[in-house]
Structure formats: structure tokens, C-alpha cells
Write a protein that binds this DNA or RNA. Structure first.
Lengths: 181, 181
DNA sequence: ACGGTTAGGTCAGCCATGTTGACATATTTA
DNA sequence: TAAATATGTCAACATGGCTGACCTAACCGT
């Protein structure tokens, strides 16, 4: 196991005395706050999705297709890290109900490139709006550089061996979105 | 633990509720970084648990019982926000395999107060150690007050109407742990 | 002492979403 | 033309949520 004896001595605002002189005590506050925060974070979309007969799996697919129009099925599988059987189930429902469409690849006609429809984009943006409202509310309670610090913290929480790939993926979607307008 | 309650700014730029309809772009980076970071965060424990035939549900139960020895079943249900049938399934396995024990309440003999065994504490601390290693590694890449900012951000991401209850819950577990030593 | 409430347990079944393994089809590529 | 690739699909299974119904034991107020 990695060395847990991490010097965090300069921060006492949240950790306080339970750290002092111990060295091996888990960082309980972040562990538990992440649990509660993430649960609420996905709770808002869950409520909307439930009314449509969808679940979180549908949300994830819709989100990434909306963010990366023309995405290949293989790319989506790689991002979600689920099997194609699991993806197939929810993707089929999204397609059948008109939230996502597939187009044959221009270069490679085996590919089924994924796009959201107008209906799909509306839902994806509604869900992203709920999550953004929560994030914006949280950031506005903190200092002006809270957004940057939050991003750096979350980035550093990602496995080092695919951190860069994640950042490139996010940046690529941002560039594509700006280019589309 | 120090007071985690963050004073709510009354004059912030825009509240969550005001966000929608401004034509603003969603905060894609935080949305997606949260997804990837949380997945990796729970991935480490998952691997350990899988070898024992346990899943995330067992982890959550073990975690909170370890953090709050003598917890009532009803309290655990309230924290996890699952049904007693769902809890019963995993709790029974943890008890049968000697990770958790139940003791009759001293005042109210209907209560089955929950405690981890030595075996249970060992596992709980191992899992918390994995998550702490990740968190400590992330915080060490950032500035000296990153821990405080991360906690404030995560706290602000929790639903306002139970934020204080969560903070009190965390603080109570910390105090009890310090008292035990 | 009794009757209602509370703490907790349990059975039965359903749903969502993950898994493996095997196989099919179309298309590209060497 | 043969192999590799992109995708889809069938079947079976596991986990961990859920509802509804029903049970015991213990507490508590009258």
C-alpha cells in the first residue's frame, strides 16, 4: 500500500487535531464529503430521467454523445468503460426513442457515428444545466479561483496513467463545441 | 473537527437557480472531471472488495459502521438512503463473515447497535487507506490550503437542506474517534 | 395490563445495469 | 482472398436498488 504518512500539516482548518501526531489517520472528511456531494450531484438528473423511464446509464451515454458529436461507438465504450452489451441496451433505447441517431462513417462505412438529435440535445442540456446550477452555486460561495482549484483537485484525483488522456478528451470536446458555436 | 459551515454569500454573482436561461454554457469541465475522478476514487476499493466477494454496498456499510461504532440500524439507513431490505442483504453477509457485530441497545433492547470487529476495522481502514492515498497525493500537488478549499467546494455541492446535518454527522464521528483514540 | 408505536428482520419478486462468452455481419486492409 | 476491425446481438448471470406484505420483540402511554 502507498505511504499514508502524508504531511498535510499546514492545513488545520478542516483537519484539525485528529491529524496531529498520528500520521496514519485517513482523510475522513474528503472521503465522506465526496460520497455525499456526488450522490446529490447525480440526484438532480436522476429525477428528470426517471420520469422518462431512463436511468444513469442513459444519462452518461447522452452526455458524451452530446459533448462529442460524431463519436464512434468504440470511443464511447472506452470512455464509459463498460461492455458493448451494456452500452447496446441503453443506446438502443435512446435511438428508438429519438434522442440519438447513428450515421455511417464517411471514410469507414463500418463505423456508426453517434449524434444527438434536437430532442436529445435538449435533454442533455437540461441535465447539464441542473448539474451546472449546483456547481455554479457551490463555486459562487467560494473564492474567485475556486473553479480552477476544484478542477486541479479533481484532475489530480484521476489515475495518473490516464489523466492526460482525460484532459485531452475534455479539451477536444470544448474546442469542437466552440467551433460549432 | 473545525467548523465546516461555510458562510453563504448573499451577493454572489449568480445563484444556481438563476443560472438556467442565461444562455450560459454548462460547466463541462467540472461535470466531467467529477465523473472521472469519482470513478477512479471508488475503483481502488472495488478491486480489494471484489477479491472478498464484496461490492460497493458492503464498502459503504462497513465504512459508516467503522466510523460510527454503536450506530443504530435506522441511522445507517438514513445515511445510506436505501431501504432496509437492501441494507439487510449486505449487512447479513458482513455479520455472517465476521466483519460486523450487533449488540443489543442498553437503554432500548429493540435496537441492534452496529460495531465493526477487529477484522472489520482492518478491512475498513485498508479501504480508507487506499482512498486517503489518492486524496493525499492529489492535495500534495496543490497549494497548502487545498484541503480546506476541496472540503468547502464539496460541502457546497451538497444539497443545502441537509448540508448541516452531513457536517454535524462527520464532525460527530471525528469527535468520537478522537475520544476513543 | 393492554394496545399502539417503534426497531428491526424477512420473504417474494421486480428492475436497472453491470458482467462473460459465443457468434453474426459488414467492411477495411494486408 | 484472407485476416482484422467495427459493430450488433443472444443468452445467462450477478449486484444492488426497489415495493409490498408480514413478522417478532420491546417500549410507552393510558
Amino acid at each position: 500500500m502507498a505511504d499514508l504518512t502524508v504531511p498535510v500539516a499546514t492545513d488545520r482548518a478542516f483537519s484539525g487535531a485528529e491529524w496531529a501526531g498520528r500520521g496514519n489517520e485517513p482523510i475522513w472528511d474528503v472521503i465522506e464529503l465526496l460520497f455525499f456531494a456526488y450522490r446529490d450531484f447525480i440526484g438532480d438528473p436522476d429525477d428528470v430521467l426517471a420520469k422518462l423511464g431512463f436511468g444513469r446509464a442513459h444519462h452518461r451515454v447522452l452526455h458524451f454523445v452530446n459533448r462529442n458529436p460524431g463519436m464512434k461507438v468504440a470511443e464511447l465504450l472506452d470512455v464509459l468503460k463498460i461492455t458493448k452489451q451494456s452500452l447496446g441496451r441503453v443506446l438502443k433505447q435512446l435511438i428508438d426513442q429519438g434522442y440519438v441517431v447513428q450515421k455511417e462513417g464517411a471514410n469507414d462505412r463500418r463505423q456508426r457515428l453517434l449524434y444527438v438529435t434536437a430532442k436529445g440535445e435538449t435533454l442533455a442540456m437540461k441535465l447539464a444545466g441542473l448539474q451546472t446550477a449546483r456547481i455554479a452555486g457551490a463555486l459562487s460561495e467560494l473564492g474567485p479561483n475556486a473553479h480552477e482549484v476544484a478542477c486541479r483537485f479533481l484532475t489530480a484525483m484521476i489515475n495518473a496513467d490516464h489523466r492526460d488522456a482525460v484532459l485531452r478528451f475534455i479539451a477536444r470536446a470544448d474546442r469542437a463545441r466552440r467551433a460549432r458555436g
